[in-house]
Design a protein around this nucleic acid. Structure first.
Lengths: 201, 201
DNA sequence: GTCTATACGAAGATAGAC
DNA sequence: GTCTATCTTCGTATAGAC
């Protein structure tokens, strides 16, 4: 990923304009999706001046979005890997769902998943985003399928069930957004957990 | 993409310019989402002239999108109601999935669900779209939950399982798009069908 | 009634002032 | 190195010609 193009020794970690813009882009991706995330919107949200974007992201809007997705995907992946390392399947799912319930409520049901935002839009001009999203989903799938295998699911069933879980949680988050209620997420997760418990292994 | 016969300078004045524009808007919603669906794009895809939009849709872009969602939602709802009337749960799901596999392949994994496109974007300027989408999802949920109840699921489990199904199918379609393969949809649906079969009633 | 021409603003990008 | 001013293109909408 893009390394710091600065010279000199250990630069102090200042509250970087670059990091701020990436955070703003992630927020916008969550709420407005890819097409809805304009440079203008990010600038308005962060208060950064216009030219700064092209100083920090020579590739312009495309690079800003790409870096935002990588950053968001990295953080979410680490979280999922931690949850799937320290819990059994039902617990991991429940903790993940709890975080999403909170995000939904705190954003007034406006914010969704920034990685999923890429999956629901075909953008001819930025195919690299699709590749990045695919990799991130694969990482989540790997973590979850591994957890299921460690809990005695056969590999093929674990793989399918991991896919179902990712699809269902992402889908339910979207339904919860439009319905302005966590009920779809709650219901989907409850059934999934029942599935984990009763599934033949 | 709307089929457009190129028969010289004079386009055949076909069924209805209005219907053609709605169809074009639906196609664009499927591929590019709400923010990505501009009037320009619909015009380019349909070959309709600029002013026609505001003649047929005095409410402009907002009305065009609203009518497109209503039309698409109506067609899809009738299909789902038919499938859930004439089949058992596993069959209905399989037939619905088969249609989506076909759509994914034929669109080269570019087209998704036009109603779901609304659920994944928060658009402050068009809240009526969210309401329309909510109603359509409710209609699908009703049809599916009813089918499950008729197949001996208790009402509360049927309701949750219907939510899980809608969320999982929509989520899996998106994953299939970005992954350019029907595998996510196939896997999610196979697990769901197993769930239908083994679930305690 | 259909379409062309255009006004007006938003958005991506760049040049150059400080 | 940061920001402002500006170019260009795209997008929504309207006026008005035919």
């Amino acid at each position: 990923m893009a390394a710091r193009p600065r010279t000199g020794p250990a630069r102090p970690r200042l509250p970087d304009a670059r990091q701020t813009m990436i955070a703003g882009a992630i927020d916008s991706l969550r709420v407005h999706g890819v097409s809805g995330t304009s440079v203008d919107r990010v600038l308005a949200a962060t208060g950064a001046p216009r030219g700064s974007v092209y100083h920090h992201f020579p590739g312009g809007r495309t690079q800003l979005l790409g870096d935002a997705v990588s950053a968001a995907g990295g953080v979410m992946s680490e979280l999922i890997e931690q949850l799937t390392r320290d819990n059994d399947p039902a617990q991991a799912l429940e903790q993940f769902a709890a975080l999403w319930r909170r995000t939904l409520r705190e954003s007034d049901y406006r914010a969704g998943c920034p990685v999923f935002a890429i999956a629901v839009e075909t953008t001819e001009d930025t195919p690299e985003l699709a590749d990045a999203a695919t990799e991130i989903f694969a990482r989540w799938h790997r973590a979850l399928a591994g957890l299921l295998v460690r809990h005695d699911f056969p590999a093929d069933r674990a793989a399918r069930l991991a896919t179902l879980t990712v699809a269902a949680v992402e889908g339910a988050i979207a339904l919860s957004r439009v319905q302005r209620s966590t009920a779809p997420l709650d219901d989907a997760v409850e059934e999934l957990r029942g599935f984990y418990a009763t599934a033949t292994r």
